[in-house]
């Protein structure tokens, strides 16, 4: 029996196998014969590397999927300025005043509540995309948070012991799964960055959102404004630090939006 595994004949083979595994090990990158630019640093002495030299393989090649045409750029930039002023002179002071009056836990609960009532949007779009896993998680989240989290005021589902993560999706994603292209980039007044597909999606989602049951436009706008104010009050200074860190805030916002809309890698895996 024991000679079945290792005997005189199989021992060299076994040894070769071990060596092969060992040298494929990323811990030993020196052994990688197909060394790329990066591994050169390990082969040559340090002072030979010219850190400020030219680069051979610019990164842009990987960006091709991230370009969305922006023929309306002048208009979009004008809207960006408008939204910027709107934030600066209206939304920010209001949300600051609001944050002063309403304590943080209450604002967090409000955010949870709004997220919870938007459940039909995420649930139905997950179904449209044949993402049964996502739909099931959303259903679970809604059930737990509605019945045990005081009508969604507490997001129990996100706690580590329950661990039902939010399944963000919308009608724009649904259109994407059916092969509809993003279209051009749009920067909408008040609503912010979008694409043609996404804008259509937002309109579609409106009818899935319980807010559409309100029968007065004024009430709908009021509720939406309140939701937005509450959201901003929870992340004070976020927009300011974004602007501070950007050289061209419009481009930064556009690129950020496009990247954000890409499939989430950690969820795919």
């Amino acid at each position: 029996m024991r000679s079945l595994w290792i005997n005189k004949r199989t021992l060299p083979l076994f040894f070769c196998g071990c060596m092969l595994l060992l040298f494929q090990n990323p811990l030993f990158p020196q052994s990688d014969l197909s060394a790329t630019n990066n591994t050169e640093t390990m082969i040559h002495p340090i002072d030979e590397i010219d850190e400020f030299g030219d680069i051979e393989e610019p990164e842009e090649e990987k960006d091709s999927s991230l370009t969305i045409s922006d023929p309306l750029e002048p208009l979009n930039r004008a809207v960006f300025c408008f939204n910027d002023k709107l934030y600066l002179y209206l939304l920010r002071p209001i949300s600051k005043g609001y944050a002063f009056i309403v304590p943080k836990p209450a604002r967090k609960s409000t955010k949870n509540f709004f997220h919870n009532i938007a459940f039909p949007v995420r649930f139905i779009n997950n179904l449209f995309q044949a993402n049964l896993h996502g739909a099931a998680i959303e259903l679970g989240r809604f059930t737990v948070n509605t019945f045990f989290g005081f009508a969604g005021l507490i997001d129990l589902s996100s706690r580590p012991d329950i661990n039902l993560p939010k399944q963000h999706t919308d009608f724009g994603d649904t259109l994407g799964t059916y092969g509809i292209k993003e279209g051009i980039f749009l920067n909408l007044p008040i609503l912010g960055p979008s694409t043609v597909r996404s804008a259509v999606g937002t309109a579609g989602d409106f009818f899935l959102h319980p807010i559409s049951l309100l029968n007065s436009e004024r009430a709908i706008v009021g509720v939406k404004t309140y939701e937005k104010t509450n959201e901003v009050s929870l992340t004070p200074g976020e927009y300011e630090s974004f602007k501070k860190a950007s050289l061209d805030p419009y481009t930064a916002m556009k690129n950020g939006y496009i990247q954000y809309r890409q499939p989430k890698r950690h969820i795919q895996e």
């Binding site: 990164e59 050289l247 481009t251 950020g256 990247q259 890409q262 890698r265």
Partner: peptide, 14 residues
């Protein structure tokens, strides 16, 4: 999901 470097690359390119 937003790569900081890619974001800056788009700005420097612009």
């Amino acid at each position: 999901n937003i790569s900081l470097i890619q974001n800056y690359r788009s700005q420097f390119n612009e």
